[in-house]
């Protein structure tokens, strides 16, 4: 069921991107969508989950806000004569457990102000984050766990 829904969504995207809504093009899009879904079928069926669309949109909005802020912050920092850097790598204890959540969090962290995820420990309990200003790792950790981590948990309830 979800398979068909995602396939239809892909078909519509295909038609919109290629710019024509003829029957042939829709059929071609459907076939291409089915093929690509078939290629990722294992990850797809393993990742069966509930999603809260509104919370997901909130997460996306927060992400774009943070992305803009981080680009501006880095730009300002580059222009500062002395830069005042105190970089370092701190360990962030993960409370998220599933792989796709950790991946999402790592990607979000990389594109937010002053932080860049470097590595995940083998037991998936710790995320190592490089920060441009690392004189107060506790504050950074709190910001991540109260910001993105909470939003991700809300958007993808167990």
């Amino acid at each position: 069921m979800t398979f068909l829904f995602v396939n239809l969504l892909l078909t519509l995207t295909w038609a919109a991107v290629s710019g024509s809504f003829t029957v042939h093009n829709l059929l071609l899009g459907f076939a291409a969508g089915a093929l690509s879904l078939w290629l990722v079928r294992e990850q797809f069926s393993a990742a069966r989950r509930r999603i809260r669309p509104v919370k997901l949109l909130l997460l996306a909005a927060l992400f774009f806000k943070e992305l803009a802020l981080s680009a501006i912050k880095v730009a300002v920092m580059v222009l500062r004569p002395d830069m005042r850097l105190r970089p370092g790598i701190f360990a962030f204890p993960l409370s998220l457990t599933r792989d796709f959540e950790i991946t999402l969090l790592a990607n979000l962290i990389t594109l937010t102000p002053g932080t860049l995820s470097v590595d995940v420990s083998d037991d998936r309990k710790t995320l190592y984050v490089h920060a441009l200003d690392c004189h107060d790792p506790a504050a950074e950790k709190r910001a991540i766990s109260l910001g993105f981590e909470r939003r991700i948990r809300e958007a993808f309830p167990l």
């Binding site: 880095v74 580059v78 830069m83 850097l85 594109l111 860049l116």
Partner: peptide, 22 residues
């Protein structure tokens, strides 16, 4: 500015901030 940051930041990891965000 990202390119300038690539030039000005002191090590690989800080440079990566400039390249990957800006």
């Amino acid at each position: 500015l990202a390119a300038l940051g690539l030039l000005r930041f002191p090590d690989l990891y800080t440079r990566m901030h400039a390249a990957s965000k800006a």
